[in-house]
Simulated scan of single mutants.
Amino acid sequence: MENLRVLELYSGIGGMHCALKESRAPAEVVAAVDVNTTANDVYRHNFPNTPLWAKTIEGLTLDDFNKLEFDMILMSPPCQPFTRIGLQGDVSDPRAKSFLYILDLLPRLSKRPRFLLLENVKGFETSSARDALVKTLKDCGYSYQEFLLSPTCLGIPNSRLRYFLIARAMPGSFSFQATAEQILEGFPKSAKGDYADPAPVPIHCPPSAGSSIEGGEDPGVPGGGGGGEVEEREYLLPPKTLLRYALLLDIVRPTCRRSVCFTKGYGHYVEGTGSVLQSRTDTKVEKAFASLDSLSEEQKLSQLSTLGLRYFTPREIANLMGFPADFSFPEKTSIKQRYRVLGNSLNVRVVAKLIELMVA
């Protein structure tokens, strides 16, 4: 296969770009498009040679798209119109406007891309936006397959259930038996038999990680440096948080084979934003939580502190999300900003597998 020209829309911090590289597809990103200033800074830091257009998608004309002559679109449109905890405005939400603009342009391109991959939240599969996407693909002569996948299906100890769609221009078919009317909840086996169920991986050894959760290198974190140990004190839960939210925490140990989805509010909000790590494993959680109601605040704090509960560092979250060891953040990017852009990103290894399936 010749080198594919790839257009990366809603490029964020470059999760799709990392996945494209990991897939080893013969491809290069010819342009990335995003308006988020912080995400763009991270993208430029990691992909300085890729043209990055800091503008709205609606600000690009049909002629702008045609000049790129791209063979593949990778995109992760705004998820807010489709999230279960949001207003679920769907196509009426102003944040869906750019996606509808893409669907309007696709049939009018002078050279339609051969491949398309889209990622979004669970909920997109029942939306009017999804229906419009599928109709456009059918009208343009694409075959497609939809998925609902979490990194756990690859043995990665982190839940992040997301909707995916891959499409390829016909004639031609996928290397697996497509079931367009069914949303798959696992990876199908390709003709090569590449997708056998993997063995689960404990949390202390994240896949594609450049460091371990347990005090390894943490090049993306102030205090962690490029070769020192993680400064755990920076990430310990504050006393007020421990006292107020202890019973709401999702606590995992380094040997756990699970963690909950990390969101953009991690480190700022506690409930439902991600797991926290028990760094002192010589104490059992049950013992630390025993008889808390009968203790004074000082006694509660002393007892809970024996667990050494801390937030995962941004680098550790990046590891769990499949970002490569050489992925890093500009020094000026604050910890809060790092959590936020990671929470808005995707699992690199899941997307890499989908790209492999799409182009095989």
Rank of each mutant, 00 (worst) to 15 (best):
K122P: 00
P94H: 09
L106C: 09
R114L: 14
D93G: 09
P107L: 07
L100D: 12
F115Y: 15
K122E: 12
K97H: 13
S92R: 14
Y101K: 13
V121E: 08
N120A: 02
L116A: 03
K111D: 06
P94E: 08
R114E: 14
F124V: 04
T126V: 11
I102F: 15
K97N: 13
L103I: 07
S92Y: 05
S110F: 01
F115L: 11
P94C: 07
P107A: 09
K111G: 00
L116T: 03
S98T: 13
T126H: 11
L106S: 06
A96C: 13
P107K: 10
A96N: 13
R112W: 00
L117P: 05
V121M: 08
L105W: 01
R95F: 01
N120W: 05
K111R: 15
F115H: 14
F115C: 11
K122H: 07
R108S: 13
L109M: 11
R95E: 09
L117N: 04
L118P: 05
K97M: 04
F99Q: 06
R114C: 08
D104P: 00
G123W: 04
A96Q: 00
D104K: 14
T126K: 14
G123Q: 04
I102W: 14
S110H: 13
L117G: 12
F115A: 09
S110R: 15
K97Y: 04
R112L: 15
G123N: 04
F115S: 08
S92F: 04
F99H: 10
S98Q: 13
R112Y: 00
N120P: 02
F99V: 09
R114N: 14
L118M: 15
A96E: 01
S98L: 07
N120M: 03
S110I: 00
Y101S: 10
A96I: 00
K122R: 14
E125P: 06
P113Q: 11
F124R: 08
G123F: 03
L105N: 02
D104S: 14
Y101C: 06
G123D: 04
L106H: 10
K122D: 06
L116E: 01
N120Q: 05
L109R: 02
P94D: 08
R112C: 00
R114H: 14
P107N: 08
L116C: 05
V121R: 05
F115G: 10
K111V: 11
V91W: 01
L100S: 15
F99A: 09
D93E: 10
R108N: 13
F124Q: 04
D93W: 08
L100K: 13
P94N: 07
V121L: 07
P107Q: 10
L103P: 02
F124S: 03
P107E: 11
I102D: 02
R114T: 12
D104C: 01
D104I: 00
F115E: 12
D93P: 10
D93M: 11
E119C: 04
K111C: 09
V91N: 01
D93V: 09
R112T: 09
K111P: 01
F124A: 02
K97S: 15
G123T: 03
F124G: 05
T126S: 12
S110T: 12
Y101F: 15
D93I: 09
K122G: 01
R112V: 08
E119M: 01
E125T: 07
